[in-house]
Design a protein around this nucleic acid. Structure first.
Lengths: 203, 203
DNA sequence: ACCTGAACACCGTTCAAGT
DNA sequence: ACCTGAACACCGTTCAAGT
């Protein structure tokens, strides 16, 4: 598993092949199938490991809101440092890592005092938002290797957005300059806070 | 494009290969490359078409909240009837279809009276949530062909969740029975409403 | 019980050659 | 300007054969 994670971190999604993993482990490619059913299972297991590593400690001491924020930051950091995990999470919402996240969120939603029938929707809304961001990160990592590549790409997208007809795309045109300088983490947490505020009014 | 969409609808993501598309068009596989740069562009174009078809008419007559709900339902319906588009949307957040959705959302966020510095975050929060759901739908469509397959699979997941240790996974254990009977569309709109409520408090 | 590595059945993409 | 289709460089997966 660690060898797989190393390859994913170094080469990204496309770099992890059974042949590459076998070569790194100095074994035959077929050998991996003794330990893992297929590539999906391999990626799911790698993602689970990475997510668990970023789970916050002793959330019990925090208020429900603070706990949800801590959980969210953990997921963000996990995806931020292992973008391939973002692709896997959003591409496979029934894997164990997602279940763990949902469990953490759900427990805090209950603690928040959300009435029974609203709990499932509140917890899954937070989860869907996270997976949405996970997807965005995943694609970013596929397209450019490092942070400066990313900045350049965002500037390029922003330049394209500015050139759009302001009549037909007023919002995009107006918001384009924010794109290259915005802080992903801040944007992510702002979204979480928005949903938390919404949950608060629904009680 | 229509031939590609037909294949995607009939066979799903995996069914669309250059060879299959060429066969359906009674041409050589290389010919497609004259019209399209690569597979990504093919999928992006197909997704754009499908999203545009589900864009609501005359949103101007609606209140901002109602307009956002109408836009959201359009995206939901598009993904619901063409799940492969969900995978493409969440896997490629800078494609034109996403830009169109963001433009629609942003315009309404402005109309809602959200102050300047909160607009980008509010609109992208709605977008990320939608893409998160898109990802969930996408995986669902990859794993089972029709609605009854899906229902069976959800029952299987729910059964697994119920069996989890209630000590370690109290929320999942408790919420499992809701899984097979919940309405995706309702859950999706509940999430949108939660974010709308949050946006409302942030003004 | 676990590993080997050739073989199978595919892919996306390219490109010389055609019309 | 557009099409053909063989060829290239890969994949994930299987499986008889080994240790």
């Amino acid at each position: 598993m660690q060898a797989a994670i190393d390859i994913l971190d170094e080469e990204g999604d496309a770099g992890l092949t059974f042949r590459a993993l076998a070569a790194r482990l100095a074994t035959g490619s077929g050998a991996i199938y003794w330990h893992v059913a297929d590539k999906d299972e391999l990626l799911a297991a790698a993602t689970d490991q990475v997510i668990v590593r970023f789970e916050p400690q002793d959330v019990e001491r925090l208020s429900p809101q603070e706990a949800i924020r801590a959980l969210s930051q953990g997921v963000f950091d996990a995806i931020d440092s292992h973008p391939w995990a973002g692709a896997q999470l959003s591409g496979n919402p029934f894997q164990y890592a997602v279940l763990r996240i949902l469990e953490g969120l759900g427990t805090q939603v209950v603690a928040l005092g959300v009435p029974e029938r609203g709990r499932f929707n509140a917890a899954t809304a937070l989860l869907s938002f996270m997976l949405g961001l996970a997807a965005q990160y995943a694609v970013a990592s596929r397209h450019f290797r490092d942070a400066s590549d990313r900045a350049t790409a965002l500037r390029a997208v922003a330049a394209k957005w500015v050139e759009l007809d302001p009549e037909q795309h007023p919002f995009i045109h107006h918001v384009a300059p924010l794109l290259p300088e915005h802080d992903d983490r801040e944007q992510f947490m702002a979204g979480i806070d928005l949903i938390l505020a919404g949950i608060d009014t629904s009680r």
